[in-house]
């Protein structure tokens, strides 16, 4: 059977890389003695896949993975076995039965929203930030981006759905961001923020949380 797991990646584990998060779950599943299905072949590995990678340093309220088990069990039972063996900072939000679906979670991803807490290194006004956002979103946003063909100028504007200033107090700003996230890639919030800093002529340090990945669950179950 196949289960989808939604989990939180909190502050204690925000520096754990994507690869290490995968290993963290493999080990947790083993500690929980869950009946994992393994791949065939020379070097069998458990059939666990992750919807999206999260940048090192970011926290998240909703990451997704799916896992294939050799025995049936209810999502509740799965959860009750996994909860107690997870390290601090990793938390299960929900578990869902994917039935017979073979579609990857990645294929169901649509958008992701983020909250960024930014500390600027200089004073900025509300008006300046607002007009910088308007300016930024009004045209192409060309950044140097790593692609398969090397580092190339890329317009990330089509990836951006929303960029809003929520609050500004002294040098502390809170932004909400929303961007495309799909199998082909997604918006890198830090990259967008860096462009904003440039427009403002300041630099900033950010702490970003992925609030939600919007998933088209129906497309999985269809």
């Amino acid at each position: 059977m196949r289960l989808a797991v939604k989990f939180k990646k909190g502050v204690p584990v925000r520096f754990v890389s994507h690869l290490d998060v995968q290993r963290l779950f493999h080990r947790a599943f083993r500690r929980a003695k869950l009946p994992l299905a393994y791949s065939q072949g020379f070097n069998p590995h458990p059939l666990v896949s992750f919807a999206a990678a999260l940048s090192v340093g970011m926290t998240s309220d909703g990451e997704y993975l799916d896992v294939i088990l050799t025995e049936g069990m209810t999502p509740e039972e799965f959860r009750s076995r996994l909860d107690p063996v997870l390290p601090e900072g990793v938390e299960i939000v929900s578990v869902m039965d994917l039935g017979e679906s073979k579609k990857s979670l990645t294929s169901a991803m649509r958008t992701a929203s983020y909250t960024a807490n930014v500390l600027f290194d200089a004073d900025v006004s509300q008006e300046a930030v607002s007009s910088a956002i308007t300016g930024l979103l009004s045209g192409e946003i060309v950044v140097m981006k790593k692609t398969k063909g090397g580092i190339k100028p890329t317009d990330i504007r089509p990836m951006v759905i929303e960029l809003d200033l929520v609050s500004l107090a002294e040098r502390n700003a809170v932004f909400k961001l929303k961007g495309v996230l799909s199998a082909e890639g997604g918006l890198n919030p830090d990259m967008l923020l860096a462009e904003l800093y440039k427009k403002l002529g300041v630099s900033g340090a950010s702490e970003v949380n992925r609030d939600e990945i919007e998933m088209d669950i129906d497309s999985l179950l269809a």
Binding site: P12, V13, F15, V16, S17, D20, R27, V56, G57, P87, E88, G89
Partner: peptide
């Protein structure tokens, strides 16, 4: 490799 410096392991 920042996880060298964070602790908090299981």
């Amino acid at each position: 490799k920042p996880s060298r410096y964070t602790g908090g392991e299981l």
